[in-house]
Amino acid sequence: MAPVVHLDRIERTFPGTPPVHALRESNLTIEKNDYIAIVGPSGSGKSTLLHLLGLLDRPTGGTYWLDGVDTASLDDTARAGMRAERIGFVFQAFHLLGHRTAVENVMLAEIHRRGGSKQRRERAEAALRRVGLGHRIDAFPTTLSGGERQRVAVARALIGGPSLLLADEPTGNLDSKTSESILQLFDDLHAAGLTLAVITHDDDVSERAQRRIRIHDGVLTPLTELVDRGAR
């Protein structure tokens, strides 16, 4: 079975004088049900990698296979479709729409996705229950705590059953106690079979992952190898 993500000598260079090499000839493979953490200081290329993985940006070199599909062959519409179907995003700033209820924010993820809209609300409610927010379904984000907002964002990322959950500093705006609960949620999701890639500079976050990859000056370096990889 093809890995969820396979990066082969991927490169991303931003034009300018001099050109900025945000990512240099990097290789990365994320298998199904992996939980990896990508760590690195600011400006190391973390965000560039996230955008490449999330199909929000195109590499200037190398190849990116997502679920066995060479993403370079896809046009913008197909890439948007891949984002909708296969990738769930969780952002540091949550990015919830303030004037929509929690369940409406979750349903937003399915607008650009194929499939019936009839059970959309049911699926959104199920996703909210899955992240432990069954009691705040019709609450507005302004009335939710930071941790609850991030749970709504996670529910939004989960609703379509993505191949990969991409989290960008998911605990960056949360206090340590709330962070812990979000990380616990990630652990639970991972245990349920989800593939996660978390980008962070926080050691507490990265330690929860099975595998840590350090990024520095656009170069990826594995820190911890997956111990029991063969067993899975």
């Binding site: 999330g54 913008d76 948007a80 479709g81 984002r83 995003f89 990015h95 729409l97 937003l108 650009h112």
Partner: peptide, 11 residues
């Protein structure tokens, strides 16, 4: 966010 959730430019 909408783009990340799969909206195209046209959407």
């Amino acid at each position: 966010l909408r783009r990340a959730l799969g909206a195209t430019r046209r959407h």
